[in-house]
Each structure stands twice: as structure tokens, then as C-alpha cells.
Design a protein around this nucleic acid. Structure first.
Length: 396
DNA sequence: TCTGGGGTCCTAGGACCC
DNA sequence: TCTGGGGTCCTAGGACCC
């Protein structure tokens, strides 16, 4: 989806179309005070002048999305809001509203599965579609179906998206960025040399800042330069798995299937404080936040029907270093009290001298609530061993 | 001017078991 | 007294993605 969060906001506030707008930070009381709907009007009637500006922003947070008119100023995803305010003070800033983005996410994904059922969810604004066997999927290299999907999404949501069509996920992902926004780009295997090799390695899904830096140290800047290296050289310098993957990727090869179903592995809640907090000096405040995070994770687990048995915490210190601790317990749980107790024990094992800027709680090793695994663990470990033995015996 | 929140996967060492 | 190979699970950290 194109500038997804910002585009959803523009559906509510069409008066902001064409203006630099950034989405980021959390909901602030000032926002509510500034923007009130005129008598007998709608959100669309709120005067542009009453929207909060980036120049007035104080506090922590990053940009999640910037509209296209904001981007020439150099602001974009993951940039700190205070820095963005220097680059584009006149931009309008809106707080994130995940519930609304998730609502539109469900709608556009439904439109897609109606047209092409083999869809892999890649987060709130992105999917892979396998339309190998969809009727008309091969017409004009896929362009006909891609345009049809774009039209259906636009009709259902008012939002635009960009689609990359290619023989595999690796190339499709790169192709999807070629014609943003509202574009369709088709990449054939024969386009490798001309359209993929000139791209910087960083464009590959899976090459992040660290890997890119290491590649650059070897003088490798483009995918083509990567493809020119021997497979054995890559394995020597990047390890067996990564080296082999790099070689395959540079030659445009990717056999990963489009995965339509998956189970969650973990669920977590974390929060960055308005100001750094100290474990001793701000004990009460931290304790309340900690308990609240545990309750939210428990709620999430219960709402979605999962239980887990690895409970963990995450801290981010004022120097931005991260520490995690976790503990695996005997029984699967989705209970706030149990999570709080176990997370509390984790907290006792981590250094608490430095001020903290973030606290998080995580529950992992998830299984479906009421599943065989969850039930077996619930009868206790000795009984579980017996139950397992009984199950093994029953196989024969 | 400091840098969100929610995830996945990988690695590596150690405990423990056969 | 010194010495095997597996294998699984747990834990901590880190890279990366949306």
C-alpha cells in the first residue's frame, strides 16, 4: 500500500491532500483540543490551520509514514520527530491510529483474496500473492490482473497500492518499489542484469544496515557486484547459510513459497516513557506501567485465544542498549497475574542502575488455548509425562 | 535532534539426556 | 583419569522487517 498510514488519515481529512503530513508519536491531548469539528460538519470540515504542526512538537517518537509531498524535505519512516521538525517544520503531524489502519488492512486483504486466494500476510500494509493459477493471471505478464486488483482496492477503500509481478517473492518485492505510487511493474528473469544488478544491495529484503556495511567494506555496493563474487568466497566471508543465500539472491533465485497460514510465535507489549525513569527513584510509576503491560499482553493472548509458557521482559536503557530476560514456566498461561509474577522474577535478574527509557513484556512459546499441548501441560509435569507416554503407546 | 511498537528468525553456549 | 556423539530445550543478544 502506498504511504499507508498517511493515506488512511487523508481519507478522514481530505483537506490535507497535497500537503506535507507525517504520522507518528502518540495521541496527545493537544490534538483533541486543537481540532474540533465545526457545528453540523464532519472531520473533513476541520480547518487546515487548526492541525498541529511538526514545529510545535515536543517529545519522543519517530515518523511511521510521511506523505509524498513531505518526502522531498528529507523526512521519512523511522526518522526521529524532533529531527524531522528541523527539516520540515511546516508539516502537519498526526498521531498513529493502529485500529483504523488495521480496519483498512482487513478490507484490502479481503479484496485481494476474493480475486486471488493464495495470499501471504506480510504485515498491515503488505502481502505476497501467488496468482500462477488464477484465471487471467498470466495475461500481459500479470499486468491485467494486477491492474484489476488495484482498481478493486481503490473502489473498496479509496487507497492506492503498488504491485510488483515477478517469478518469485524476492524479485516481486523489488519490482513493487519500481513504480511507486499506484504503479505496476513486471520483472522477468531476463531483466536481472538490466534492472536488478544495478540496484544497491540494501534494496534486497534481508540485507539491512549491518550486512550492507560489511558488503561495502569488501567493495560490494550493487547486487551485480555481489553476483560477480564466487559462491565459495561469499560462504567463507558470510557463513554457510548467509553466503549461499546471498549468492542465490544476487542471481535472482528464490524458491520460497507464498505461505497462506501461520501461527504466532510470541506476543508482546512495550512502551517508551515520556522521560527516562529510574528503577529506584520512579519505582511506583514503573511498577504501574509494568503491571499494565502484563495486563495488556494477557488481554491480547485471551482475545486471540493463545497461551504461552516463556515469559520475558525487555529494557532499553538511556544509552539505548537493550537487555532481555526470560523464563520458561511449567504451565502454559494467558493469566495477567502469572505473567506479572514471572516477569517480575525476570526483572530481578537484570541490571537496574541506569535510567530506563523503555519497558516491555513478552509471552512466547505460544500454542492455541485449549489445544492438546496446552491441556497436557496443564495437568502438571509428572502427569504430562504419563500422558505423553500414553499418547506414544496409542500410536502403535 | 536522538532514535516507536510489534514481530520473526538466527546464533551460540550451557544444561541435560540417551 | 580421560574420553564419544547425538539430540533437545533454555536463555541472551542481535539482525532485520513492516
Amino acid at each position: 500500500m502506498d504511504a499507508f498510514y498517511a493515506s488512511v488519515e487523508l481519507l478522514r481529512y481530505p483537506q490535507l491532500k497535497g500537503l506535507p503530513v507525517v504520522i507518528g508519536g502518540s495521541r496527545r491531548r493537544e490534538d483533541e483540543a486543537l481540532r474540533h469539528v465545526p457545528e453540523g460538519g464532519t472531520l473533513a470540515d476541520i480547518p487546515v490551520e487548526t492541525f498541529p504542526l511538526l514545529r510545535d512538537y515536543v517529545g519522543r517518537g519517530v515518523i511511521t509514514t510521511a506523505t509524498y509531498p513531505a518526502r522531498p524535505f528529507g523526512v521519512g519512516s523511522a526518522m526521529g520527530l524532533m529531527k524531522a521538525a528541523k527539516l520540515c517544520p511546516q508539516a502537519i503531524i498526526l498521531p498513529v491510529d493502529f485500529d483504523e489502519y488495521r480496519r483498512f488492512s482487513r478490507i484490502f486483504k479481503k479484496v485481494i483474496t476474493n480475486a486471488a486466494p493464495v495470499m501471504e500476510d506480510r504485515g498491515v500494509d503488505e502481502v505476497y500473492i501467488d496468482f500462477t493459477v488464477v484465471p487471467d493471471g498470466q495475461l500481459e505478464g500479470g499486468r491485467v490482473l494486477a491492474r484489476r486488483i488495484q482498481r478493486s482496492i481503490l473502489e473498496a477503500t479509496g487507497l492506492t497500492c503498488s504491485i510488483g509481478v515477478a517469478p518469485n517473492k524476492l524479485l516481486a518485492k523489488m519490482a513493487s518499489e519500481f513504480e511507486k505510487p499506484n504503479g505496476v511493474s513486471i520483472v522477468y528473469e531476463s531483466d536481472l542484469e538490466t534492472r536488478i544488478w544495478p540496484l544497491p544491495c540494501r534494496k534486497v529484503n534481508g540485507i539491512g544496515p549491518k550486512a550492507d556495511e560489511k558488503l561495502q567494506r569488501f567493495g560490494i555496493r550493487t547486487i551485480g557486484e555481489l553476483a560477480a563474487r564466487d559462491r565459495s568466497w561469499l560462504i567463507e566471508n558470510f557463513g554457510k547459510a548467509t553466503g549461499a543465500w546471498m549468492h542465490e539472491m544476487a542471481w535472482g533465485r528464490d524458491e520460497r513459497p507464498v505461505v497462506t497460514e501461520s501461527e504466532p510465535v510470541s506476543m508482546s507489549r512495550e512502551t517508551t516513557f515520556d522521560r527516562d525513569l529510574h528503577a529506584v527513584r520512579n519505582r511506583a510509576e514503573l511498577g504501574a506501567i509494568f503491571t499494565h503491560l502484563c495486563e495488556k499482553v494477557a488481554e491480547d493472548l485471551q482475545r486471540k485465544g493463545y497461551v504461552g509458557k516463556t515469559i520475558g521482559i525487555k529494557l532499553r536503557y538511556d544509552d539505548f542498549k537493550i537487555a532481555t530476560r526470560d523464563q520458561t514456566i511449567e504451565q502454559f498461561t494467558a493469566d495477567a497475574k502469572t505473567i506479572r509474577l514471572t516477569a517480575g522474577r525476570c526483572l530481578k535478574r537484570v541490571p537496574l542502575e541506569r535510567p530506563l527509557r523503555l519497558l516491555g513484556v513478552r509471552v512466547g512459546a505460544l500454542v492455541k488455548a485449549g489445544s492438546q499441548e496446552a491441556r497436557m501441560a496443564q495437568v502438571g509435569s509428572t502427569a504430562r509425562a504419563e500422558a505423553e507416554a500414553a499418547m506414544t503407546a496409542s500410536l502403535f
